[in-house]
Design a binder for these strands. Structure first.
Ligand SMILES: [Mn+2]
Ligand SMILES: [Mn+2]
Ligand SMILES: [Mn+2]
Ligand SMILES: [Mn+2]
Lengths: 217, 217
DNA sequence: AAATATTTTTAGTCTAGCCTAAAAATAAAT
DNA sequence: ATTTATTTTTAGGCTAGACTAAAAATATTT
């Protein structure tokens, strides 16, 4: 498995979570910031290796083997993110690019020892679940903050967008995983929300609320 | 800097320690398990980038910039080896291959935070010195065990060969870094040595003794 | 249903990093 | 000082993984 093949598998895995149909060539190209023709090439190679099922013009789906490989990459990515934050004091907006590299290190022993060293974490610093060594991944109970009606309280449990601009915005608003958010009111006009966080009121746009995962309490 | 360029620089660095002259094409090809023609190719690219000085048929030497880059790769390699042994309970014969991968991770912050997390170690699990972030590397005082005369005592401080067969042999003989070795006698015929280690006597061949670094006490 | 737009695939190129085989330079032996 | 052996370089090829441009298939409008 090359570095590049691993990246394709991971992207296909993430895209396949969003839709039940086959993952399209263009969608992959967009995420990878490459060209559809390059994607077609690679997808045909992955099909040769039986990591995906490919039918011309119909997109691709992961095989069981392909999904397992993708999950192992996701596992490594998220474990390394935990390592960086918990052990090396990185902040949650600094870990992604380094984890993109570390996820390709090939050593089962390393992955499993790291998992143990970190205390078998179940979630990464962004609230995403960490697959175990068998590829089992917990389904985390969560909704988007934008779907919560006024008057309800919820705990922040994850982010949909984990770009550093978004994460730094949350830091500035003092919103972290585990924070309790009360939806004070919701504007009909732009769907912006007024929240109470730590006894302070903040207003966030619908776009912000649509990228924060919460759990009602 | 590609993965491959980094490997070349590192190999050139290691070979340049052994001889004062330019590092030869064949020597590089041997270590890299590749062909001299491939080496010539790459060496010309590195010369373009001013990482080495190359004169046809005369071998290469690192420039200051090239040496610094090589040292940063060596630094990462050895820090990761310490991490694997100290934090993840790898044994000293299991770390090299994984460190070969980890040494290519590009993040100064990661390297320096890791260094700090490990308590700024000065040596790796094989007794090799770890360059600091400026590229300074301590010269460790050491001799080969094969050069120690009978009757003297010495502390084991490093290995020249760090193949897992050799390291496992040392484990079996209960020789570790820090062990005190007394040279009880030396055979004239084959230069084999009888040592006292932990009040037990062991006989080791000249080949073994030629791969163990010690410091007289 | 036909026309138009979009998506996807194919065909052909390019570069990095490897290779083999042949030529050129250097080193060693006679 | 030649001849012979070794080392190194050049020339030409191959594959992975990207690209552009053109063709083919599918989706959307009219
Ligand atoms: Mn990430
Ligand atoms: Mn994450
Ligand atoms: Mn090593
Ligand atoms: Mn080492």
């Amino acid at each position: 498995m090359t570095y590049s093949e691993e990246n394709y598998l991971k992207v296909i895995y993430h895209l396949s979570l969003a839709s039940t149909k086959g993952v399209t060539t263009n969608a992959i190209a967009n995420v990878m910031e490459s060209k559809p023709s390059s994607v077609t090439d690679m997808v045909q190679k992955l099909a040769e290796k039986e990591l995906v099922i490919y039918r011309k013009y119909q997109g691709v789906e992961l095989t069981d083997q392909g999904r397992f490989m993708a999950l192992m990459i996701v596992r490594k990515h998220r474990l390394w993110e935990v390592f960086l934050v918990d052990k090396l004091d990185f902040s949650w907006d600094e870990v992604h690019d380094v984890a993109e590299q570390l996820e390709h290190i090939k050593s089962e022993k390393l992955t499993n020892k790291l998992d143990e060293f970190l205390g078998f974490p179940t979630e990464d610093p962004h609230g995403d679940p960490i697959p175990d060594k068998e590829g089992k991944i917990a389904k985390i109970e969560k909704q988007l903050l934008s779907e919560i009606p006024a008057g309800r309280r919820a705990i922040c449990v994850g982010v949909k967008d984990s770009s550093s601009t978004f994460l730094q915005y949350l830091d500035k608003q003092q919103i972290a995983l585990g924070s309790t958010l009360e939806v004070v009111s919701k504007e009909d006009f732009d769907l912006s929300l007024t929240l109470r966080v730590d006894n302070k009121e903040v207003t966030v746009s619908n776009k912000i609320a649509g990228n924060l995962f919460v759990k009602l309490i």
